[in-house]
Every structure is written in structure tokens, then in C-alpha cells.
Write a protein that binds this DNA or RNA. Structure first.
Ligand SMILES: [Zn+2]
Ligand SMILES: [Zn+2]
Ligand SMILES: [Zn+2]
Ligand SMILES: [Zn+2]
Lengths: 131, 131
DNA sequence: ATTACATTGTTATAATATAACAATAACAGA
DNA sequence: TCTGTTATTGTTATATTATAACAATGTAAT
């Protein structure tokens, strides 16, 4: 995990850094605002970095929120099997790392017997704090 | 299913109609273009209808694609447990109706024992045609 | 008729994301 | 070193997706 970071470009490091420092998902334009002091002034600079970081699995996109969160699931070397829980009240997001769940979904076949190489699952509910 | 439609408003019916006629997911602005001849001229008119239709489960949003598809899963009276397969080559989308899968996910508990009242799952792969 | 409430129409704008191209850096082979 | 090649960065403009705000109209109960 740490090694991979060595190969990141300058902008990729800057963007990853800010996301990793955030406990919760960040939106692209909030990232942009936060990295402007570091010289990244325009959306494409941020989006390019985000694309790459998603591709190599250092971060994940929370699709229903258009936001990006650092991967902290050590089992998540793969970028193609992601699961999250999202609190609909406070928007708290947590990556779910359940080998049972990922096994189940990775092996899932539809009615035609088709298997999939990738999935993204988002659970919604009310977190403990909000209850 | 048919009854519910009776209670839809004019704009909701128009928008649902165009989505149901489409075999595949439609984007909001494509819907807008298609309903302009029916008098819906501005985005809010379409987005309001979409919001309502999603809420009552007549359509679903494909989050990773920002697109909307009619629900054709008769078991999907619930709007809170959705699963789709998406072809990454041709973008073909199909709603998955597997009672086994939905049972598994509805009963899923995370490490803290928390259960969720809602989920959305998107599988990605290459469909038969594209292979 | 009056109130209340839902729906619609309308304009403007916010938020998210990409196209296109120029400039610079990194680097391998001649 | 020079040179071609590729990746990365910088920059401007624009496309795409979505909502705020408020006025107008419709619907139905009292
Ligand atoms: Zn992860
Ligand atoms: Zn919460
Ligand atoms: Zn459905
Ligand atoms: Zn396909």
C-alpha cells in the first residue's frame, strides 16, 4: 500500500493526501478549494488525479454522493469490489470489509449464469450516533 | 403496479411514459428533450417528476451513470433494495431480481451488528453480446 | 368564497465533469 | 548531449447534471 504511493505523480500525491486526511468523503470542488494553495487551480487537475487514484484503488467514489473517500480496507487491494454504509442522516460513510460479503458478491451469478468482475454496493441507514 | 399510475400527476405520467418506452436507462436531459413536445420545457419539471417516480419505485436511478430506468421487477414493490448489471462495453443495463440476493443483502449486518433498510448494488461486466 | 395544499411554469444559477490544446517534465536510446 | 517519445501538468472554455427561488395555476375541503 505504502509503496504504491511512491509512484504517484505530484498532483496525485497532493490530492490523495487531502483525501486521506479527511475522515469522510470529499467532493471534487471541495478538494479543489483545499489544494489551491498547493498550486492546483483548475478542475481538470483534480479530476485527473481522482481518476487515477480511483483506478489504482487508493480512493473510491461514493456514486450516490459524488464524493471520494480514501480506501482504508487493507483487504481491498482490488479496486473492483467495493461496499459502503452510508448514514442518511449525517452522511457518515464507512467502507465495509466483509470477506463473506465480498465472496458472496464476487461469486454471484445472474439468471443467465453470468458472472461479474466488478461491483459497487451502497447500504443506507441511520448510524448509531443518529439513532 | 398499474393502479399506482392513476395517482400520478400529468408531468409524472409524461416522464414515466417516456422512460418505460425506453429499453435502456435515459439521462435527465435526454428525457427533457423528448418531452418538450409535450410542454415540459425546463429541467425542474423533469427532475421533480423523476424524484417522485424514484420515491415511489416506478423508476430507479443508475447512480454510476446518472441515468434512470423503469422498474420491471415485479418483486420490486420496494424502492429500497435495488440491484443492476451494467455492461461496461455497450452500457446495457438490467435490473437483477434474485430473491436470494435480496434476502442476503437485506439481512446483512456489519461488524457492529448494524442492519440497513436500503441498498443499491451495481454489478459491472461485459454482456453476452459484447463478448 | 376562503383556505390550504399540491402541482406546474419560469428564470436563473449551482454543482459536477470533460474537451481541447499548449507547456513542461521525465526519460530512454542514438 | 541531443532527440524523439511519453507522461504529466497548466489553462481556458464548455458540457452536463441538478437545484433554488418564486410566481401562477389547479384541486379540494370547509
Ligand atoms: Zn477499499
Ligand atoms: Zn448518522
Ligand atoms: Zn425495481
Ligand atoms: Zn454489452
Amino acid at each position: 500500500m505504502a509503496q504504491k504511493k511512491e509512484y504517484l505523480s505530484k498532483n496525485q500525491k497532493i490530492v490523495l493526501d487531502i483525501i486521506e486526511k479527511s475522515a469522510q468523503p470529499m467532493k471534487a470542488y471541495s478538494i479543489l478549494f483545499n489544494v489551491q494553495k498547493k498550486g492546483l487551480k483548475a478542475p481538470p487537475q483534480v479530476y485527473r488525479a481522482l481518476d487515477k487514484l480511483v483506478e489504482i484503488g487508493k480512493i473510491h467514489k461514493i456514486e450516490s454522493r459524488n464524493a471520494f473517500i480514501a480506501c482504508r480496507n487493507s483487504a481491498c487491494t482490488i479496486t473492483n469490489a467495493t461496499a459502503f454504509s452510508i448514514c442518511e442522516s449525517c452522511e457518515y460513510v464507512k467502507e465495509i470489509s466483509s470477506s463473506k460479503l465480498s465472496k458472496y458478491l464476487s461469486n454471484f451469478q445472474d439468471k443467465e449464469g453470468m458472472k461479474y468482475n466488478k461491483y459497487n454496493l451502497e447500504f443506507f441507514g441511520i448510524c448509531k450516533k443518529c439513532k
